[in-house]
Design a protein around this nucleic acid. Structure first.
Lengths: 265, 265
DNA sequence: AACTACGTTCCGCCTAGCAGAACACAGCGG
DNA sequence: CCGCTGTGTTCTGCTAGGCGGAACGTAGTT
């Protein structure tokens, strides 16, 4: 499975507490596409001795981070899900964002995503699937690089990253990318601000390069920016710059020479 | 804040691995309504020494289970969210369930929930908010008792729990409750089956007792059962019993004497 | 300036967790 | 029928890793 630039949260470096490194390596051994894992598979992936594995897994089960199935295999338990829900709810954005995202989705049909910055990565906090495709290219909870993809660029730009293309993104309030994060995928993204014009996240339209091409993105740019403005207003930010950017008509929207277009402005 | 019968995943008993017990107690210290916590608050809630807390928190941060804010406070990190998304996706129900739930939601306006059994508890895997109320009474990721509430009763009944009211639930394929889990909340729930007629979860309509009263639930019972049948069919189960239950008209639907009505059949 | 509360660092003691051996069991093929 | 190989599990002695307390720095309060 060619997993493009998907990155993992799993740290390679020791954290200072061995047991936790080991315990979390067990949890990180599970990947989205996985069926439940046997003890032996876990031992392979984590490199842990079966005895230690058994002891740690016992504790993880006790804490509901892991579940032991009848046949002895392990799968992830609900504890992580519960924590994740608290994390998600703590962002306090779903209430205002989801209706806006649903509006975009039903209007355009393409997948709508919302990413937030988290350290040096970005994470997909909400996603509404395309009405066309079956399997989404990005799932809620997926971690991706900041430097790749429209959402990442927008987050970097409004986190104050210097230089190009970020200066342009800051002027135009959106970024289009095609094949940047994944060769098959393109998208356009715009920032959402909160109180004090603090960056909250990036609202995006993503889809296959076949449908979501440059003309299409140019066409929906205004609609996306209005949605971002609406979200920004609801979150206590100033929507005016986004509204004005939505109205702007730049003819400098010319893809730079090169096989991969990634432009803004 | 009167938190009704909401239960926590936090185990009181030692798991065999001290460090994990302590580390998870830090994570469990965060509650949905919490703002970020200071070290001192964490020390209070967990009972850990600040030195150990600092060391464990360092490791948790390293693993992205915790995030340290600029002012020194801590909040939950994205790692739990990522794990939770894998957990949720691993259930393989969202794809078929969400459209059905959205259909119910737009038709009825009340909140729609889907719960799965997890050990001796149930967890809300998906939820669509009511179009009326602002704050949902149940959030995604919430853990609740199995023995309370319509969803819990349904899960118990189709997990083979003996006696009443479970025998009746098995006959009628739904359960209505009012004020059982929470005095202000009522709901009606129906099972969703998969391959080999294995119970997958419980689909429910929930709302305030003021709107979701017995007559209302009786009225929407058929619609709910048809939705459950549709979901069951998509998941490889046999929808016929649910369809027949949807058609059934029982006049024995009489609330038992007592201030709290919780009936089925 | 004294006081309080907080975050952080340091260090010696000792226990909790580790690695490995040994064991039990099941499935398979010769 | 009997080894063989793969599981999962139990037990134990050794020691490194984590514990908790003291001590320190700092910021805000009265």
């Amino acid at each position: 499975m060619a997993h493009s630039t998907k990155i993992s949260l799993k740290p390679q470096t020791p954290s200072g507490v061995d047991v936790l490194d080991r315990a979390f390596s067990i949890l990180y051994a599970f990947r989205p596409e996985d069926t439940p894992l046997t003890l032996a598979e876990l031992a392979q992936r984590t490199g842990l001795y079966k005895s230690t594995l058994l002891r740690l897994a016992g504790s993880l089960i006790h804490h509901h981070f892991l579940v032991r199935l009848g046949d002895g295999r392990y799968r992830l338990g609900p504890a992580g899900f519960a924590l994740g829900s608290i994390y998600q709810a703590g962002m306090n954005v779903g209430e205002v964002l989801l209706p806006i995202m649903r509006g975009l989705s039903s209007e355009l049909g393409e997948a709508i995503s919302f990413h937030v910055r988290e350290g040096n990565a970005r994470i997909c906090l909400y996603r509404i699937n395309s009405t066309y495709t079956i399997g989404p290219q990005v799932r809620v909870g997926d971690i991706q690089l900041l430097e790749k993809g429209a959402g990442g660029r927008v987050l970097l730009a409004f986190s104050g990253q210097a230089g190009e293309p970020y200066d342009t993104v800051r002027r135009c309030y959106y970024y289009m990318s095609s094949g940047e994060r994944d060769p098959e995928t393109a998208g356009i993204s715009a920032p959402v601000f909160g109180d004090d014009q603090k960056l909250i996240g990036a609202l995006g339209i993503v889809g296959p390069v076949s449908r979501v091409d440059i003309p299409y993105m140019k066409k929906v740019k205004g609609r996306l920016l209005l949605a971002a403005a609406q979200a920004t207003e609801s979150m206590g930010g100033n929507p005016v710059p986004l509204r004005e950017a939505a109205k702007a008509r730049h003819d400098s929207d010319i893809p730079k020479p090169g096989r991969r277009a990634s432009i803004s402005g």
